[in-house]
Design a protein around this nucleic acid. Structure first.
Lengths: 195, 195
DNA sequence: CGCATTTATCAACGCTTGTTGACTTTTACT
DNA sequence: AGTAAAAGTCAACAAGCGTTGATAAATGCG
């Protein structure tokens, strides 16, 4: 064991020289994947953004596919909804999504890439299967997965129109207005009786 | 003027030999763009689908970009909504979208390509600006464009989750169930007082 | 210092892409 | 039949891609 590692371990932070470049690569990758999608985001461009050699990207992440897998790790960080009044579930959710999405390129990268890349689409489905659906399952009794799917459709539709297509009237909506419009929709999907 | 053209003109149909291949290319292009997105849909693959030489594709459409532009022509064919009762506007709209989308690859092609290709994103915005928004503007008095944008967000979100990501609970929804769930949402977006 | 390990550089590879131009076959009219 | 136009074929190009391996520089320890 190298002494640097020992010191780092003692100090509570395992910081190597390479960790900074790893992080730089990952940040550049998220940005590029988010802006250009999977195929147009070239390793060469990502490397240029991180001000390093393209070969380094491969050296650290093995392959473009694995780099994307690392860059597309995303946690919705859903809040605890058990104490939220039933008629405010939608508002709470949509407000959370809005703040979670902005300031993090990851979801945009995932969404863009999911259109053309099967791995990304799988990740997106996992987001639904492993995070959204289980959380909502704790709150709902009948058909929780259908309700979760409906919530996803409106939430992702908003992300699509607002961040990707940037259709003016929706892209320009304030958080409060978006919550006021979409909140009741999600609440109804979660609480209305089955058709 | 060639006699074939004269005859064709007299018969009311200008059918050349090339028209069939043109159409075959366009159909194959829509299918491939819809399945793979813009960059992964190669001209070679499209040509193979149409059982034709790749050079023919260029000969007929000039460039991949122009081929896409031709393949992405799409008419929503929105019905006349002026006679529909206000509280059924959403149901009518969502049912129309569902039937319009299925059996035509064009919208899927547009949606997939719009994520990574600026031309496609422009087309998508034009769909909104030139077709959806004007139609709804005839029916609504206050903030018609915002309402149209909200309708688009839910409609496209449904297409995304159902046709592209294919999240099981939503992909498996019957038309009637989808209409029952989403109809009231769109109706509210169109008729509810501003927040 | 000397040396081993980590980190970075460079040029090149094999492959696929869109696109082109020269050429041959088919078509349809005089 | 002869011929000019249309339709189709073929091989090749330049460029860009992900990826590799040999090699150089930097780093930190004894």
């Amino acid at each position: 064991m190298k002494s640097q590692q020992v010191l780092a371990y003692a100090a509570g932070m395992a910081e190597r020289k390479s960790d900074r470049t790893r992080a730089a690569i990952l940040a550049a990758a998220r940005e590029r994947f988010g802006a250009d999608g999977y195929e147009r985001a070239t390793i060469r461009a990502i490397a240029a953004d991180a001000a390093i050699d393209p070969a380094m990207v491969i050296r650290y992440y093995g392959t473009k596919e694995k780099l994307f897998a690392a860059a597309a790790e995303f946690d919705l960080r859903l809040p605890d909804l058990r104490d939220v009044p039933r008629d405010q579930l939608g508002e709470e959710l949509i407000r959370h999504f809005l703040t979670r999405w902005e300031g993090d390129d990851t979801l945009r990268a995932l969404l863009r890439a999911a259109m053309t890349h099967e791995t990304a689409a799988d990740r997106m489905r996992q987001l639904f299967t492993d995070q959204l659906a289980p959380t909502l399952r704790e709150l709902l009794v009948d058909a929780p997965d259908v309700r979760a799917g409906l919530v996803a459709s409106q939430a992702l539709g908003l992300a699509l129109v607002r961040y990707i297509l940037q259709v003016p009237p929706v892209a320009g909506l304030s958080h409060d207005d978006a919550v006021a419009w979409l909140g009741p929709t999600l609440t109804r999907y979660l609480t209305a009786p089955l058709p």
